[in-house]
């Protein structure tokens, strides 16, 4: 053992905690090393003060009064709770909630929720930004179309596809497209009668372009399903009805 090691030990351990080897070393070393002997002297003085502190056992000013107040509190508590066990539910709950493990677990769950929520928000924002970038060179109406009624159907479907992280199938996309077209045409027919002439002309021009598109074309899935085929027939019927109503308007 070096002098430094011994001096560290003298500061951090009590002599009665020394193992026999260290104690023997200390006994012999102190006789021949002034530096260690000086530390030993200082530590011994410190120990004497600590011993005196230890001997000064603090006394309760009035033991009897303290006991009585404790027993009075307990007697009052006992009166309130005939059955201690059934009434300590909230105590137990309090104890459980004060447990470090429970507090840490709650914090972790809370953090997990916050992080999950933020991640979801971030992914959505990223998808939208990606979509915006893809549409950067398109017209404003096409870009806005993702969120507006007069949207470009293809952009809308592309957006839908991106936001679904590619999990949506072409069959689903085609069905969506067909349903949208059907709904649009139905709405158009419904509203047509209430529109003034100028609006009808504008609307006709808009939808003339719009309904030219074959719903299933972009996905090459014309024969995707019986349902899609039925919907396409329905669209054809609606389109013809629209054209018929346009012609009757033009004649008079």
């Amino acid at each position: 053992m070096t002098c430094k090691e011994l001096q560290n030990l003298l500061y951090s351990a009590r002599i009665d905690e020394f193992n026999p080897t260290d104690f023997e070393f200390l006994k012999h070393h102190l006789a021949e090393c002034e530096s260690c002997a000086a530390v030993f002297y200082k530590v011994s003085n410190a120990e004497r003060i600590l011993t005196r502190i230890k001997e000064t056992v603090p006394r309760i000013p009035d033991e009897e009064a303290l006991t009585e107040s404790i027993i009075a509190a307990i007697a009052g508590f006992k009166r309130q709770t005939a059955d201690v066990r059934s009434n300590t539910f909230f105590d137990r709950l309090y104890d459980v909630c004060s447990m470090k493990v429970v507090r840490i677990a709650c914090t972790l769950v809370f953090l997990f929720c916050i992080i999950s929520y933020m991640t979801m928000e971030y992914n959505d924002a990223k998808a939208i930004v990606g979509l915006e970038q893809r549409m950067g060179n398109q017209s404003v109406s096409n870009r806005a179309g993702v969120f507006y009624q007069d949207m470009n159907i293809l952009d809308f479907l592309h957006g839908l596809y991106m936001l679904s992280n590619g999990t949506i199938s072409s069959v689903e996309l085609t069905k969506t497209l067909v349903l949208i077209k059907k709904a649009d045409l139905q709405n158009l027919l419904k509203d047509y009668k209430t529109l003034d002439e100028a609006s009808k002309v504008r609307l006709n021009a808009m939808y003339a372009e719009y309904i030219k598109e074959e719903p299933s074309l972009p996905f090459g899935s014309k024969n995707n399903s019986v349902e899609a085929a039925a919907l396409q027939n329905e669209i054809k019927r609606l389109r013809m009805e629209l054209e018929r109503s346009n012609k009757t308007k033009e004649r008079p």
Binding site: V57, I60, I70, I71
Partner: peptide, 24 residues
């Protein structure tokens, strides 16, 4: 079992130790 006199004896026997720690 809810015996207060028994608990009182425990209090008398140990309150000084409890006080010493708390005071220090």
């Amino acid at each position: 079992t809810g015996n207060i006199p028994a608990f009182e004896k425990i209090v008398r026997r140990h309150q000084a130790y409890a006080f010493a720690i708390a005071f220090r």
